[in-house]
């Protein structure tokens, strides 16, 4: 496949990283090309590269400064990395349109777990039931992970449930499902946060003890489905049982 015609800019992120920016936007096609480059460069790293961080519309390359400096000759290590990235961006890109897994995630939208659902509904002139119906109506793309271990930025929600984030962060419980702007996400850990909380999942998005600590990865597809408080407790309890039986063996 030919390289897509997205224009880009490359700029330094401090003295030991460069960011390739495809345009400061939330766009599925741009995100697909960012992730495709990410998977390609993970397989075939740039010389001196230490880590790659994909985001909505950018890809950041961290590098080993002393190592790169040795090969850079008369130019700076940054200039050498930018040149290298520009060369590699000319390579054919193998777009991974559906690289991720499809996850159906249970969410309990009961007001006990949804401190902001009434406010969000009122701000959009709809009922809380409509908020739930709309939130569960779409398949979301995981655009990126960031902010907290395993925090997946997903989008985009129906504009009828979109709402700008809170001006001041408040304490948010782990596993809370929130909306900010046109994004939706799940807090993997207790944390301050500014997203509007409309429910909670009994699933663990992040568990340091698991072999794969993080459940969702960039490129995954996510659907939410509504569960009752009873279902919520049952799923939680069965997960606990599973953990303790694993502990026994």
């Amino acid at each position: 496949m030919n390289p897509p015609s997205f224009s880009y800019r490359i700029f330094p992120l401090g003295d030991s990283a460069i960011t390739i920016d495809f345009g400061n936007c939330i766009d599925e096609q741009i995100n697909i090309s960012v992730l495709s480059r990410f998977f390609q460069w993970e397989q075939h790293p740039l010389a001196g590269m230490t880590e790659l961080v994909p985001a909505y519309s950018s890809l950041t390359v961290y590098f080993d400064l002393p190592k790169v400096k040795k090969t850079a000759g008369n130019i700076t290590a940054i200039e050498w990395m930018i040149e290298q990235a520009e060369q590699r961006l000319k390579e054919n890109i193998f777009l991974q349109e559906t690289p991720g897994k499809m996850m159906r995630i249970p969410v309990c939208y009961d007001s006990e777990f949804a401190p902001d659902i009434f406010r969000l509904a009122a701000a959009n002139n709809i009922s809380p039931e409509e908020v739930i119906a709309l939130h569960t109506s779409k398949t979301y793309r995981v655009f990126m992970l960031g902010f907290l271990p395993g925090f997946a930025y997903m989008g985009q929600v129906d504009e009828k449930i979109a709402m700008p984030r809170k001006p001041q962060p408040v304490n948010v419980a782990a596993d809370s499902v929130g909306v900010a702007g046109s994004q939706t996400g799940i807090y993997p850990l207790d944390s301050p946060g500014g997203w509007h909380i409309i429910g909670r999942t009994p699933w663990k998005l992040f568990d340091a003890e698991r072999e794969e600590p993080v459940l969702l990865q960039a490129g995954d597809q996510v659907q939410f489905f509504s569960i009752s408080k009873n279902d919520f407790r049952e799923i939680q309890n069965s997960a606990l049982l599973k953990e303790s039986s694993q502990g026994d063996t």
Partner: peptide, 8 residues
Amino acid sequence: LVSSAVSF
């Protein structure tokens, strides 16, 4: 700005 990488 949409979120992107930040560093030490």
